Amino acid sequence: MKTILAEKQAHFIDALTIRTLVFIGEQDVPVWEEIDDYDRFVPLFVIYEGNRALGTARIIPKEKGIYKIGRVAIRQEARSRGVGKKLMQDVMNYIKKETMAKEICLDAQLTAVPFYEKLGFNVYGEVFQDAGIDHISMSYKG
């Protein structure tokens, strides 16, 4: 498996295809909430096995020194195979190497909290709704 920083149109199509399958198809997120202006300007990553795109994530710079990982999505058939873990580790390593990050944050669906905790993220704040799904904020300061 190899994680790449999207640079070609095909990479962006692969990422949006995965997000469409997962968020819009599986989780009924409205398309107008899933696709936003950030997709045009922020680093977007796709993890491949051979030529098949299995997952995606993006990074949004927040206030000074804080970077937010978002839109993490893994194809259903690729889950529980370590794809999400490798994708997240690669994205986190990119942030550590390419930025002056003092903190990495994300908003996790409640069902994904244990996954992110294993990567070193800690929960903070209250549960909130995003696109009709319960989420909670998480932070990594490793």
Rank of each mutant, 00 (worst) to 15 (best):
R19H: 05
E33R: 13
D14R: 09
L54C: 15
E33Y: 11
E98M: 09
N51S: 08
I136D: 02
D90E: 15
A131F: 09
G132K: 06
G82E: 06
R40G: 09
E33A: 11
K86V: 12
Q129H: 15
F12G: 08
G142M: 05
V22Q: 13
L16F: 12
E33I: 07
L119Y: 00
M100K: 04
I95S: 13
D130Q: 08
D37L: 09
F12I: 05
T56F: 10
E33G: 09
S137M: 03
L44Q: 11
Y38R: 08
P30M: 08
Q89R: 05
E98S: 07
H11G: 14
Y116K: 01
K102M: 11
W32H: 15
L16C: 11
A6V: 06
A78E: 01
I133F: 08
E103G: 03
D90L: 00
E98V: 13
F45E: 13
I35P: 10
D134G: 04
K8N: 15
V46E: 01
D28V: 12
A108M: 02
G50L: 11
G25M: 09
E103S: 13
T20W: 13
H135T: 00
A73F: 06
G55W: 14
Q9I: 07
G50D: 09
I35M: 13
A10E: 12
K2I: 05
D134M: 14
V72L: 02
R58W: 11
D37A: 02
Y140D: 03
E34Y: 02
K141L: 12
E103W: 07
T99S: 12
V127L: 01
F23D: 14
I133S: 07
G55L: 12
T111N: 08
T99F: 15
E49N: 06
T17M: 10
A112F: 00
G142Q: 03
K86I: 11
D14L: 05
G55A: 15
C105G: 00
I60H: 07
G25N: 10
L16R: 11
Q76I: 09
V46R: 14
K86H: 06
D134K: 15
V29H: 02
A53W: 03
A10M: 06
H135I: 01
K86Y: 10
A53V: 04
Y116M: 01
D14Q: 04
K8G: 09
E26A: 06
I69F: 13
R40I: 12
V91G: 04
A10K: 10
P43L: 04
L87F: 02
Q9P: 07
L21D: 07
G84A: 14
D14V: 14
N93H: 08
L5P: 08
V31D: 05
K97Y: 15
L5E: 02
P43T: 12
Q109A: 00
I66G: 04
A112K: 01
E103Q: 15
D130Y: 03
M88I: 01
A131I: 04
M88Y: 01
I74N: 11
G84M: 06
N51E: 06
A57T: 07
N51V: 10
